[in-house]
Design a protein around this nucleic acid. Structure first.
Lengths: 336, 336
DNA sequence: CTGAAAGCGCTTACAG
DNA sequence: CTGAAAGCGCTTACAG
């Protein structure tokens, strides 16, 4: 590593023959009055010397760094988690803030990771989960977290932003019904909050249409959905196809489940969507758009949650903690 | 947002009836000598008051914050990019550093995003690319970047860590040959560095075995691979199957291409691996392990690049800039 | 062994 | 309109 000797305001002041305050005003204080001459001279010296603002120094003065801390439950690994960050980042940038993401590794106390972030004196801190869940935040840390993203604080003491799982499920089922489908099966993600809520929406939409559900099946053998758990998808599809009441639509818990359904239907020689429609949740673009036919799926409001979270964090005004559900949106492709 | 009044060392010093220096020594200076009594008393007061170290203040004193900046070419979106961060993060943590990732948005000058990071006075800065490419770093910024990850600085003035594309391709082809395959086609990612280098490795391995290649085909219509470009995979597979010289193995540029090959082979009623073996690059786990049969694929050395990058950054000793290629590793599943 | 002081690089009242 | 000084919260020589 090449050692970089940092230039400071006083270096510039010396070269320009003015005080440090004047340099500070010229470079950062938009409103500071001085002759255009001085300002331009200072700016050009700064440029020439390669001056880079020292935010640590500014931060110690202001009490905070222009950072918004995001502690995320597991590394920002999934494509949709990235959307959360994208939403946060866009809004942060507009406010001159940077996003500082820190991983909450499993086994680590939430207090420990929060302190890690707080050492850097961020302007605000959010907690983001990789999938919709409940998170317990100890009482003494409640004040340290401004907003929960994709999860809900267990006691409702922190404003929480989550996808409207019930509404999303209702919408996709209505869409299937509108397409003329009546025998709809649901291969759901078991044991997680999203699954439970979507199942409610699934039944609600069918009930309001006076249609009987064909059944809800768990995608994996474990009681909590995970990519590693042995898949039951193929066997469910086969059982459904050989039952007396063959479905004309299969709703899937996510796009990867849909991928497995595609494979099982292909093996059975069935055509999507003519024989059976397939729809799902997630809109994992590279996957959904590459399937044949391209998959119709409900996109989660990740980016919207990120954007709204940042707005709440930076708004400054205290808000009553509340739970806010954000709508999915339908991405129509060709599988229905 | 609840306003958090920050506790400082002097608050603790006052309560404990000692000087600030003593408090600093008790909390941070492992070696500072003082009576155990005092130390414990100070620690318990700090705990009680909820003291959190102010790294901005320490930073202004030391000249840097305990951060390693990572500017990444496009948001850390892909699962493998996450592996880079995981590698960086693990190594950083051991050294008491945090990773500060900043997005280099397209259209933005590299100098601008580097300055954004440098304002925070990181201990070191890395540049990471989402796919293997060449990156031009202006002369004046060469000293500001300690290491390039998954990309190479155009003029070789910065140590660069990249996957050994040729070696990886050679290895997977040798594996196919060892499995008795002789008519091997390659559906490659066109127009990108990885594709070019892998093609060399592909031919080298076949040549050394005295086997003629069946042909190299581009996965998409555009001259540079992208997920959005119209796919040619299905038509290539069909053409290959109807040619006189049907392949007994298809090597794919990535797991998503392999997914399309699977679909095309299923439509043709062919069985993997009995009729045709399929192998690819990436090891995108959720995809590769969910395909039927699970996909054999070459995993990229993302985590290793991240780990090594951090070691180089924190080593401190100047190194001659050099290009370092890291090996892929074979993930054997059931498609060969 | 502990304290008082200086200093890191900024910004912000306070004087001139 | 500009300068000199104080102060943010630390750490590090320097005295006692």
């Amino acid at each position: 590593m090449v050692k970089i000797v940092a230039i400071s305001l006083s270096d510039i002041a010396e070269r320009a023959g003015v005080s440090v305050k004047t340099v500070s005003g010229a470079l950062h204080g938009g409103s500071a009055r001085m002759s255009d001459d001085t300002r331009l001279k200072i700016k050009s010296i700064a440029e020439e010397l390669g001056y880079v603002t020292n935010l640590a120094a500014r931060g110690v003065r202001q009490g905070w760094l222009p950072l918004v801390g995001v502690v995320s439950d597991g590394l920002i690994t999934s494509p949709f988690a990235t959307e959360i960050v994208r939403g946060l980042d866009g809004a942060a940038r507009n406010a001159g803030m940077a996003v500082f993401a820190v991983n909450h590794s499993s086994g680590q106390e939430i207090g420990a990771v929060l302190d890690e972030v707080r050492q850097f004196r961020p302007r605000a801190v959010a907690y983001a989960a990789m999938y919709h869940k409940e998170v317990a935040v100890p009482q003494k840390l409640v004040g340290a977290v401004g907003v929960m993203i994709n999860c809900r604080e267990a006691e409702g003491r922190i404003t929480s932003l989550v996808p409207d799982e019930q509404g999303g499920a209702r919408e996709i089922v209505r869409y299937l019904l509108a397409a003329g489908r009546r025998r709809i099966a649901f291969i759901n993600l078991p044991g997680i909050m999203a699954g439970v809520l979507r199942e409610k929406g699934f039944h609600a939409a069918l009930t309001e249409a006076g249609v009987a559900p064909l059944g809800v099946y768990p995608a994996v053998r474990r009681s909590v959905y995970s990519d590693r758990a042995p898949s039951l998808v193929a066997s469910h599809v086969e059982a459904l196809l050989h039952s007396g009441d063959r479905p004309d639509a299969i709703l899937c818990g996510n796009d990867r489940v849909a991928m497995e359904v595609y494979a099982a239907l292909a093996r059975a020689g069935l055509c999507i969507p003519d024989d059976i429609a397939v729809a799902s949740f997630d809109n994992q673009v590279e996957l959904a758009s590459r399937l044949d036919p391209p998959l119709t799926t409900m996109a989660l409001p990740h980016r919207a949650m990120g954007r709204l979270a940042m707005e709440i964090l930076l708004a400054g005004e205290l808000q009553e903690p509340h739970l806010r559900t954000l709508p999915f949106h339908l991405v129509e492709r060709a599988s229905v």
